[in-house]
């Protein structure tokens, strides 16, 4: 079942990457420079890391029929507090202590933000879109307060490792994504948590009657989303060794929602596809990198993006595929009996 859901996103990702090959034959080339891997593909994964992390968090929130509009602001807050902690700690200490203090402060603040969203939605019963809108607006204000509205530059080597460092020739941010994705996959596949989240998203009242503590499940997904945004904020701020309360993570919530939707998770809640969201995030980042490297004029960037997104969404829609693509697609699909079952499964849901 997962396979058929991932099929279209993966195909689209491959098409976007293949388009690059026409313009730049060296696009897929990966070489070792200064002891680490470089190449456009590495860039896409590296730059896409924050979006992938946030999409993972967002997937679980959307699975409970919620939405978290606050993630962009949490990114700004997390980066700002980390930067300010480093700047203040650096004066008295040149060891690694300021780094860990910064990480603790950033994750602490983002968890607090997640807790705030979670409490508003689960305990007070405010609609998610409204509850998280509060933090979307206020969070950026808090970030600007923390940085005093200035772009703060950090001259502290260890801090730049989080978003710009390499471990065994691979960007460190990739390990962070892998770790968070691994935890999320494990918790939702190997424990009952995944089922709980799905059932809360499908019908919170029925889940409560069935003995699931819906409120705590909802609280948990917002906490996790806040955590993911916090890590993403650390990566983004560390990557440029500065904290920008005004622009860091701007519109990230929309990109993350888009990634989740491209990945096949419905905004109506219920079933969710973590791997799909990760691929969705990669599609968005590949598109961005492609636009930069094949030299599309900046005035048309957004239109190109929108056209690709429309195509992706159309291909994702079973109704569209049935009406437009079905006649031609039928034959190859018949060969695999497993696949036709999947199509039915899609229709039922």
């Amino acid at each position: 079942m997962l396979k058929s859901r991932l099929f279209w996103p993966v195909i689209i990702l491959l098409i976007i990457l293949a388009i690059n090959l026409f313009f730049d034959p060296g696009f897929f080339k990966i070489e070792v420079k200064n002891g680490h891997l470089t190449g456009s593909l590495v860039d896409i994964v590296n730059r896409g890391a924050p979006l992938m992390l946030i999409s993972i968090g967002m997937t679980l929130v959307i699975a409970t029929k919620g939405i978290d509009l606050g993630v962009g602001s949490v990114i700004a807050m997390s980066g700002s507090i980390a930067a300010m902690t480093v700047v203040q700690g650096m004066a008295s200490d040149t060891s690694l202590t300021p780094l860990f203090m910064a990480i603790a402060a950033a994750l602490g603040l983002s968890l607090a933000a997640g807790l705030w969203n979670g409490l508003l939605v689960s305990r007070i019963g405010i609609q998610p879109i409204v509850a998280t809108l509060i933090l979307m607006v206020a969070g950026r204000g808090i970030a600007q307060l923390i940085t005093d509205g200035q772009i703060t530059t950090i001259y502290y080597e260890p801090y730049s490792f989080i978003g710009g460092g390499y471990l065994f020739a691979i960007p460190f941010s990739v390990y962070l994504v892998a770790a968070v994705l691994g935890i999320a996959l494990y918790m939702t596949k190997k424990t009952a948590l995944g089922l709980f989240i799905q059932s809360v998203g499908a019908n919170p009242e029925a889940s409560r009657l069935a003995g699931i503590n819906s409120k705590n499940i909802i609280l948990l997904v917002y906490l996790f989303s806040g955590f993911c945004a916090g890590v993403g904020g650390l990566i983004l701020s560390s990557n440029v060794s500065s904290a920008d309360g005004n622009n860091a993570g701007l519109w990230f919530e929309l990109d993350a929602i888009l990634a989740v939707v491209i990945g096949g998770t419905s905004l109506m809640g219920g079933r969710f596809f973590l791997m799909g969201s990760v691929i969705g995030a990669l599609i968005i980042q590949s598109l961005t990198t492609t636009i930069y490297s094949i030299g599309i004029p900046p005035e048309t960037n957004l239109i190109v993006k929108a056209v690709v997104v429309i195509i992706v969404c159309l291909l994702q829609s079973p109704e569209f595929r049935q009406k437009v693509l079905r006649p031609r697609m039928k034959k190859p699909h018949k060969k695999e009996p497993e696949n036709s079952l999947n199509e039915q499964g899609v229709k039922i849901s």
Partner: peptide
Amino acid sequence: IKSQSGDFTRAKGKEVMEAFLKS
């Protein structure tokens, strides 16, 4: 040879320049 918007920000400037360097 290449001209692209970096939105006046550091992060975008870096990202776009990376893509320029790769191509």
